[in-house]
Design a binder for these strands. Structure first.
Lengths: 209, 209
DNA sequence: TAGATTGTTAATCGATTAACAATC
DNA sequence: TAGATTGTTAATCGATTAACAATC
């Protein structure tokens, strides 16, 4: 089955998953690498190479089962399980993540939200109450947490990560604009919103030229 | 100066910019490709290649001027100018973007916010009032808009984009989980938050194995 | 000048694309 | 069976790394 999978392939997996969900919704049961490639703006060859990183899932002369492949990739991504998330930082971004219902719909459930600001502690965010970050260690000792969403200022981010790592949190979704240092075996995905805007600005300038 | 610049280089530019800002803040005036490479976890060779896409900015035997290079890259990215943004969709994400002060701090100013939901129209978001999306066309005719932030449901996204493109908006910061179709000359940066979580889930699973 | 470090060319590595035998 | 399409190997392309002459 799956040996080494390159970062390039990993980054395409969610797009495969999304397109397959769309196809399912459209009532399409079967698709060839050519057909999926047209839709995703990838070559048929690349589609076949990518999928084959995880084992042969197609049938010669037929193509791929849309629902079969969607389930398969969903399983590879781990979206067929529930992930318990806590949010650290109840600012604009922290609250937006807490209030969104697209994350729980994909199995990513927010179970707690923390802040150090007295004006925010006790505030209601959806079905949750903002807890004092001073309670965080105790909370981690008493509850299972898969993922921590870091929505704190840069100045606090690394310190918070250390507390969380020490108590066994293995996954970070980081919205603070810095590169976190984490121990071996810990995963980080950065969402550097500012950087996206900078790239957009760059591309727009280049179009002008 | 700059001929073709690969996507790989473009995606690194914001990180260069961020690290150079940090170095400036630390009072460091000069840095070699080796020094910057250590800091950014890149090879010295790659740093020199990247920077040279935009012309020779270093001095042999010395390295690079931190502030000079920061200004240079800032100019390439276009963050030395102001960008007028409107937000389409006053949900959790739209409001979070509108309320953040890190975007205006980088020259990305939100000048208006729209929604189609009667319960949201008229609502105050920071210094702005949510306008009826029915007013959008008129607004675009009367005002300059550089970037539209798409924070609407998938079902509305493509339709909104078409209205905006027709009225000359050339840049989109898209938070809806779909691939927008835009005319030649229009730039799109996607922020697919769900996909980030899926990749995080995948990486965490792989660490377990 | 001597040492350090760039800018740039050449070598390597990895990812994408093409080709095709296997087979549904 | 004949046609279609996969899985997989080989070829190509592009990005990263190494090397080194130029020069501050």
């Amino acid at each position: 089955m799956a040996g080494y999978v390159s970062e390039a392939v990993i980054k395409r997996l969610p797009a495969y998953y999304r397109h397959l969900k769309e196809l399912e919704k459209e009532g399409i049961h079967q698709i060839s690498s050519q057909g999926l490639g047209n839709r995703m703006h990838l070559t048929a060859s690349q589609i076949r190479q990518d999928i084959n990183c995880f084992g042969g899932f197609g049938r010669q002369g037929y193509g791929y089962s849309v629902s079969g492949l969607r389930e398969h990739i969903g399983h590879i991504l781990g979206v067929d399980r529930t992930h318990r998330m806590i949010i650290v930082g109840a600012g604009n971004i922290g609250r937006a993540v807490a209030l969104s219902d697209s994350f729980p719909a994909n199995g990513f459930e927010t179970v707690a939200i923390f802040d150090n600001d007295e004006t925010k502690i006790g505030m209601t965010v959806g079905s949750l109450t903002v807890q004092d970050v001073a309670e965080l260690k105790r909370y981690l000792d008493e509850n299972t947490v898969d993922i921590a969403v870091l929505a704190v200022p840069v100045s606090h981010a690394q310190r918070m990560v250390e507390v969380l790592c020490e108590r066994g949190v293995k996954g970070f979704w980081n919205f603070a604009p810095l590169d976190l240092k984490v121990p071996e075996g810990t995963s980080v995905v950065n969402v550097h919103l500012d950087e996206g805007l900078e790239i957009l600005s760059f591309r727009m300038l280049r179009e002008l030229a």
